[in-house]
Design a protein around this nucleic acid. Structure first.
Lengths: 130, 130
DNA sequence: CCTGTAAACGAAAAATAATTTCAATTAGCA
DNA sequence: TGCTAATTGAAATTATTTTTCGTTTACAGG
């Protein structure tokens, strides 16, 4: 998602566009899959509480996505649908586009369950660690 | 996995079978997808540190599996391969067997990446919450 | 059975992470 | 330009996980 689009989404949803929100937004945009610590380091002027609150807000607005792989949450800009490739040795996270889920098959997974989204993580050993 | 199998796996890997490990094992076996709090409540006699350490050990031995869905880790006995259906309203976690991943396609996901395992979570609204 | 010993345990403290509170500040509208 | 509800952040609180280290114990070998 482009920064302008994200800013439009914030303002369009009735939220103020503050310097802090812009700083956090740019921090997230700087790199995918960052941890809270990395994000904080990228916007030193912004208070912890605000970083937490802002990421929560952005998640709700669909501007950023939160990824949970043990060892604390990570955040990424909401981009095209993709999944993650996680190296169990060095911890590097990569992405891949190919989505093996067939939406046609989804209704089968649980009777009466309304599917909204899904996340898929593939664990293993990356090329460098082999 | 049956309790006997798990115990065999512990002893067979050179670890001692202690009352604490048995208590944690039974706690995990009592219900799938329990949080740390729930597990601790099920073995009040066991120290916190030991519960953490034991779950780590069991995860390494492949006796239990750790699931990360934001809001803290959950644990389940290592059973047949399955995935999770998570209700975003009430938080209930269910399972489904159908695995939409084709192992034949896996080599394509990342060049040089050696796939070891994967996890898939489907989010939405459960039948009760609709 | 004992016994010795490495493994395992757990209380307390420390490190880490996230949330709540509330007074001060500010974005954006009128 | 001024008003006001929204936003911010320091500090305190609460929750979670890890480290430390002295004590206890499972179990292999005698």
């Amino acid at each position: 998602m482009r920064l302008e689009t994200a800013i439009g989404r914030i303002r369009g949803s009735g939220y103020k566009v503050t310097p802090q929100r812009l700083a956090v937004l740019e921090a997230v945009a700087a790199d995918q899959h960052q941890s809270m610590g990395e994000l904080r380091r990228r916007c030193p002027g912004v208070g912890v509480v605000t970083v937490y609150r802002t990421l929560d807000l952005f998640s709700e607005l669909g501007v950023v996505r939160r990824i949970d792989l043990g060892e604390g949450a990570r955040y990424e800009m909401a981009e095209d649908h993709h999944h993650h490739l996680i190296c169990e040795d060095c911890g590097k996270v990569d992405e891949f586009e190919l989505c093996p889920l067939d939406p046609e098959q989804m209704p089968q997974v649980g009777a009466g369950f309304e599917v909204r989204s899904h996340s898929l993580e593939v664990y293993g050993k990356c090329a460098e660690c082999r």
